[in-house]
């Protein structure tokens, strides 16, 4: 990991106009990202996913993004035209979504989808693209790449689908990967296997990773640094190895309310939320 900064986000705000009035999903989030693995953790509605989506310009049409600064290397993400976005998305910043069932095209073979992702950003002929796609399927540890290449998403299991998605997102060789709950829908052992694949690829290719999850334990065992979000604010930022020294009562509460395998059946400590946490 070097100290070079890839992405700077300053005072990011995301608001949505809904029939019930304005919803302030992200309230003044700031962070710097180097070539490292950054975890963003929070419960539902904390704004963790919206933070990730805003970086890629994927905020829904009824949402508005404002930021003092959103700089990715030489690109100012705050002022991009749709055409300029297409040069960034996929090619330089890519996103792995939670559920491969809904994120892969159901009527296109897996091979064709990976090839499409590759040829969108690389001028190569069909034969070369096919070769690269098969290589990529092998890289995500799919045992029979030829078979998977020719199959449709519904013919694969959840873990396999998520490997396919990783293959597809990594094949254009982006500099930054945003993974939004990439393994939450998977069984726990499969989840760890998929994370190991992501881990190896990101390390080998020197990519930066933003890993968004609700699972504080998992994220801290995987990432270098963790941002803890609550109601749109980052309430605490800490090194993953320092998790046990967390200071903010919300972080501590999240850790304490997890059931443990210690044979103790007494009540779990519950989280007493304080209004002041939501004020940043």
């Amino acid at each position: 990991m070097s100290s070079e900064t890839l992405l700077t986000v300053k005072n990011l705000e995301v608001t949505f106009n809904t029939p019930k009035g304005k919803v302030h999903a992200v309230r003044g989030v700031s962070f710097d990202l180097g070539r490292e693995r950054l975890g963003i953790v929070g419960e539902s509605g904390s704004g963790k996913s919206q933070t990730g989506r805003a970086i890629l310009g994927l905020t829904a049409a009824n949402g508005a993004i404002t930021a003092d600064k959103m700089q990715f290397r030489d690109v100012d993400l705050a002022n991009l035209t749709p055409k300029q976005w297409r040069k960034v998305r996929g090619a330089r910043i890519s996103m792995i979504m939670q559920d491969p069932k809904y994120s892969l095209n159901p009527v296109m073979t897996i091979g064709d989808q990976i090839i499409e992702a590759y040829r969108e950003h690389h001028k190569v002929n069909a034969k070369e693209a096919r070769l690269r796609a098969l290589e990529m399927l092998e890289a995500v540890k799919i045992r029979d790449p030829e078979r998977v290449f020719n199959s449709y998403p519904h013919e694969t299991s959840g873990g396999m689908g998520q490997r396919v998605m990783i293959a597809m997102m990594l094949i254009p060789d982006p500099e930054l990967i945003i993974a939004d709950e990439p393994t939450s829908a998977l069984d726990v052992t499969v989840q760890l296997q998929v994370m190991a694949i992501l881990d190896d690829l990101v390390r080998d290719r020197g990519m930066a990773l933003i890993f968004i999850s609700h699972d504080l334990q998992l994220i801290s065992s995987f990432c270098d640094r963790v941002l803890v979000m609550y109601q749109g604010h980052v309430v605490e930022e800490l090194r993953a190895s320092e998790l046990h020294n967390a200071k903010h009562p919300y972080t501590k509460g999240l850790l304490n309310c997890l059931p443990k395998m210690d044979g103790d059946h007494s009540d779990l400590p519950t989280l007493e939320r304080e209004a002041s946490w939501a004020e940043g």
Binding site: S221, F222, M261
Partner: peptide, 29 residues
């Protein structure tokens, strides 16, 4: 379970997986 004295390799694997991400442990799955 508290002592972690599970015998079947499948249960041991589940038990290890519950401990969070550890690259070396994943290789034993």
């Amino acid at each position: 379970l508290a002592e972690g004295t599970l015998e079947h390799p499948y249960s041991q694997q589940l038990y290890k997986a519950a401990g969070g991400y550890d690259r070396a442990v994943v290789d034993t799955f």
